[in-house]
Structure formats: structure tokens, C-alpha cells
Design a protein around this nucleic acid. Structure first.
Lengths: 193, 193
DNA sequence: CTTTTTGTTGATTGACGAGTCAATAAACTC
DNA sequence: GAGTTTATTGACTCGTCAATCAACAAAAAG
């Protein structure tokens, strides 16, 4: 059965299955067997490719972070003024690919993972610093020395909206548009200081 | 050894030990044996009083929520004007009792628990609605119809700062004062609209 | 002082799940 | 087409842990 490079596809399938299972169960207490079944392979194969459950989680985290990074880059490419760029970052934060229920649930659980797993912490740190420096860079011309503070305020608000999205039952969940407009409102108030 | 009503003390000890262990391990993957050892009792006793691990977690959650509620009530008691009351809520949110590392870690994990455990979700819902209605009540005279929106903005920011506090390594962790001033800044901008 | 209630634990059970391994099979090399 | 590499799995091991239970101890009740 061994065909040309099944490995990349398998890895991708397992990573996607991991996001899905974390979303369904709502926690990291998913078994490798569950993930593997969802991906249509045996649990032995998952171990074969990733070595351990921990590595599966870390690969999944990298994947989510990569998607997010791509969304930010994409949004930034279309923006020209500083303000447009800040708004683009906000938009990207709630982009369709990253703000799906299961992905948000995965994010939440990655925060938990980061409490104990150094590599998870490092990855989350990279995301934080990048988001922060992106914001500060474009806020500087707009609000001067207050840039770091404003970036922190916006960043915290975005994170908080994610947290609430994870918790809220589907019916009264804030949608992407509402979340974006809330953050942009805060931004507006900061700018007209 | 059976003395006068050991039960309340034991229960309290076990709940405190649970917060501590969740804080240390950074996740709900703590064993009943670990919790019991920290509380100075056998794991059998923990089961005797609480029935199951799940119930231990729920009791711990109720305890954390109770402390938080008391802090809010205490802060509100000393406030008179609407604005003071809103500020009091913000202060209470970052009060010493609730903003300790281990407690914040517990909060984060309760969010995860709420994804699967209906009672945990209910408890967190109660907290959210109370915080929200408290804020809206005092914001209404200040910002009128925008009150719900502003409450959501402030609430999300507070939650986000908690999330970041859980993640950040001790050294560059935002302290209570800084968190409070950040939220009050946002409030100020909203008020001078 | 004997009976009941309350407190407490060590030992055990039973389930579950991560990780290993040996075996099978298909493709690729030469 | 013999030998190597890659893909894949079922069956197994080994540890861990929630939950139970039978037993013991001490107070309270009568």
C-alpha cells in the first residue's frame, strides 16, 4: 500500500483531526485513538509519525498559529495607511479560519498546555510578541508613546473575546462582525484622544 | 479521632488544596490523591466527602466564584457615584484574592471545564451575567444606550488580562495596578465620547 | 458502658490509555 | 526479482487513577 509520500497527507489529516476532536470534547483529554480514528488511521500510525501525543498537540498548535499568521499577512498586504493596517490586524484576528468554534476551543486549550509545556509556551509567546509588535509599529504614528499601552488594551480585548466565544453557547455567541466592531470602537476612542 | 464536625474544615481544606494543585500543575490533570495529600488527608476521604472528582472541581469553582462575588460586593459598598461604582467593579476584578497566580490558573481551567460540564458552564454563566448587569446598571446613566456595548468591551478586556496573566512568566507579568489602570483608561475613553 | 454516628484510611479493583513491537504489504531501487 | 525503504496495523504491555470497601478509631447518645 505504501504509495508516494503518504506522510505529509497523514500528518495533515491527523492535525486536522486533532483540532476537530479538541473542539468536540472541549479539552485536551482526547485519546490518541480518538484522533486517529477521526483521521482514518490506526493509533499506532499516529505514534509512528509524531512520536507522542504531546508532539501531536504541538504540531497542531503550530498549524493553528501558521494559519493565523497567514491571515494577518494577507490582511496587511491589502492595507496602506497605518490605521488601515491596524484595522487589518483586528479583522484578521477574527477571520473565518481562526474564529471557528473548534479552533477557538483549541486556542483555549493551548493556553492550558502552555502552562506546563515549554514549547507550547514558546509558541504562544511568539504569537503574542508578533501581534504586539505589529500593532505597536502601526500605532506609533497614530498615538505616539501610548502605542504599547494601546496595543496591550486591544490585544487583551481580542483575547477576551476569544475566551467568551469559546464559552458562549452557539445561540448568543458574538459573531465575527460584532467582535470586530467592538474592538474597532475601542480603537476609535483611543485614536481620538 | 472523630471530633466535632470535622466536615466543614475538611471540605474547605480540600477545596483550597485543589486550587493550589491546579495552580501548580497548570491543568485539571491533577489526581485526587495529589489534592488529598496536599490537604493532609487520604484520597478515600476526599471521595467520602465529595463523591467524585468532578464534584471536587465544582465545589472549588463555587468557592472561587464566592470569593470574587464578595470582593465585588465589598468594593461596591464603598462607592457612591455611578462612576465610582464602575471603577469599584474593575478594582474588585483584580483584587488580591482573585488575581493570584494559582487562582487565575484555576479560572482558566474552569473555562475548559465549562466546555463539557453543564454545571460548570452554568456557574460561569452566572458570573458573567452578574458582572455584565452590574456594569450595565451603572454605565447606563453614564453612556446611555451604549451601556451594554461598553460593558462587553470592558468585560472582554478584563477576561483577556486574566488570560494573559495566566500565561505570562512571573517576571514580565502585568501586576494588579497596571491591569486596573489599563481598563480604567479604556473606560475613560468611553466616557469622554 | 454499649450502641450509634462520624471520621478516617490502606488495600484493592477495574477501566482506560499511551506507547511498543512484531508482522504484513506495497512500492521503489538496481 | 532480491533487497531496501516506507506505510500500516492488531495485539500487547505497563502504568496510572477514580472509585469502592471493609475495617478501625473515637466521640456522642442513651
Amino acid at each position: 500500500m505504501a504509495k508516494v509520500s503518504a506522510e505529509p497527507k497523514r500528518r495533515a489529516d491527523i492535525v486536522k483531526a486533532t483540532i476537530h476532536e479538541i473542539g468536540v470534547r472541549g479539552s485536551l483529554e482526547v485519546t490518541v485513538a480518538q484522533i486517529a480514528r477521526r483521521a482514518g488511521v490506526s493509533s499506532a500510525l499516529a505514534h509512528h509519525y509524531f512520536g507522542s501525543k504531546e508532539q501531536i498537540f504541538l504540531a497542531t498548535m503550530r498549524h493553528v498559529l501558521t494559519i493565523f499568521g497567514a491571515e494577518v499577512r494577507g490582511a496587511l498586504a491589502a492595507a496602506t495607511t497605518n490605521r488601515e493596517r491596524v484595522e487589518a490586524i483586528v479583522h484578521a484576528s477574527f477571520a473565518a479560519g481562526s474564529f471557528r468554534r473548534e479552533v477557538v476551543s483549541a486556542w483555549l486549550n493551548f493556553y492550558v498546555l502552555a502552562q506546563t509545556e515549554p514549547e507550547a509556551r514558546r509558541l504562544l509567546g511568539v504569537y503574542h510578541r508578533r501581534l504586539s509588535s505589529n500593532l505597536i509599529y502601526d500605532l506609533r504614528p497614530l498615538v505616539g508613546a501610548r502605542a504599547p499601552r494601546v496595543a496591550e488594551a486591544l490585544g487583551a480585548q481580542i483575547d477576551g473575546l476569544y475566551l467568551r466565544a469559546a464559552l458562549a453557547p452557539a445561540r448568543n455567541r458574538l459573531d465575527r462582525t460584532a467582535a470586530i466592531s467592538l474592538v474597532l470602537d475601542t480603537l476609535m476612542h483611543e485614536l481620538e484622544d
